[in-house]
Computed example of a mutant assay.
Amino acid sequence: MPIAAPESVPTVDPRLAHALGAPQHGDSTVRRTGRALRKLTASASQEVAEQSRLAREIQQPVTTGRVIAVTSIRGGVGKSTVSALLARAFNHYRHDPVLALEADTALGTLPVRLGAQSVRWACTDVAQILTPTMQLTDVTGYLVPVADGGWLLPAGQGRVGAPLDVGTYRTVTLALRRYFAVTVVDCECLPGDVARTAMDTAHARVVVAPLTAEGVNGTRAVLDWLAQLPHSALATTVVALSANSPDTTLDVKTAVAHLRESGVAVVLLPYDRHLAQGGPIHTAMLGQSTQQAAVQLAAEAMARAVRVR
């Protein structure tokens, strides 16, 4: 018996939508002016070569859909933001279908970050509908199209509800990777069951670490746990070290070195005024350093995802 279509629900309460205000640029005017002046005197060849290298990494062909799981040790550190940045980077550089899948039912913000105006079908609904005979056009009828390309499957409708169970997560990810070259999964925080399952079964993992002593220390404990998994999970893991304040005092070099001791790649995601607003992410409004970091993170994750057969 077919299930009834859920009601469409706005991602942001209309009474609060005006509070988002106009999006700010990630870089201040002074910083943008200084960067433009430096570009006039610097050679662009090296920068172009690096951008081309990263683009090639992101565009690597895949024979089966790759799943990249994103998690963190606690909420509020930028996990959904990193997931959205990754999905946008893959959508920009790849020419095959890309899916952003939200696997965090604790009022996650991925739909807002990706600019979805409303959501209808959620993971638990779609898990009951998917069949092996469906075509991509059938599947996308239950997904949210993202303005800049790609698709979104939310975990819920912005209400506190039952957590996503491991069985549903496995059903959805196994079925949908047939249709999407890359699936970016915005997981719940560790040590949740779905997060542990996602980290164990994904082709690549991104752990978001806040640039604080507590955050780096806790993330290192997660990396030590990944090292104990039986299939080299650590070799396919990247850490996104996120600065959530312009006044961070922790020494970046020390923090990066501590995390790299475990053998993982570390990408620094700088503080960005546009991201700090918490609304929809507009790529053109991101600071230049943030845009570069997002592309580097996508390249690092994809390079590791294709290693797994």
Rank of each mutant, 00 (worst) to 15 (best):
I3S: 07
I3M: 06
A4N: 07
P6E: 02
P10L: 11
A19N: 04
A19L: 15
A22C: 05
A22T: 07
P23R: 00
G26V: 02
D27R: 00
T29A: 14
V30H: 13
R31L: 15
R35E: 15
T41A: 14
S45E: 14
E47M: 06
Q59A: 10
A69L: 05
I73T: 15
R74Y: 01
S80T: 03
T81S: 10
V82D: 07
S83P: 14
L85T: 05
A87M: 06
R88D: 12
R94Q: 13
L99Y: 09
A103E: 08
D104L: 15
G115L: 14
S118F: 02
R120N: 13
A122D: 09
V126L: 13
Q128F: 00
P132Q: 01
T133H: 01
L136M: 07
V139P: 02
Y142Q: 01
A147D: 01
W151D: 04
L152I: 02
L152W: 00
G156Y: 09
V166R: 14
V172A: 11
R178I: 01
C187F: 10
D193C: 07
T197F: 09
D200G: 05
R205P: 00
V208D: 02
L211A: 10
G215M: 00
G215P: 00
G218L: 02
D224F: 04
L234P: 06
L234D: 02
S242V: 13
L269C: 08
D272Y: 02
Q277K: 04
Q277C: 06
I281D: 01
L297E: 08
A305Y: 04
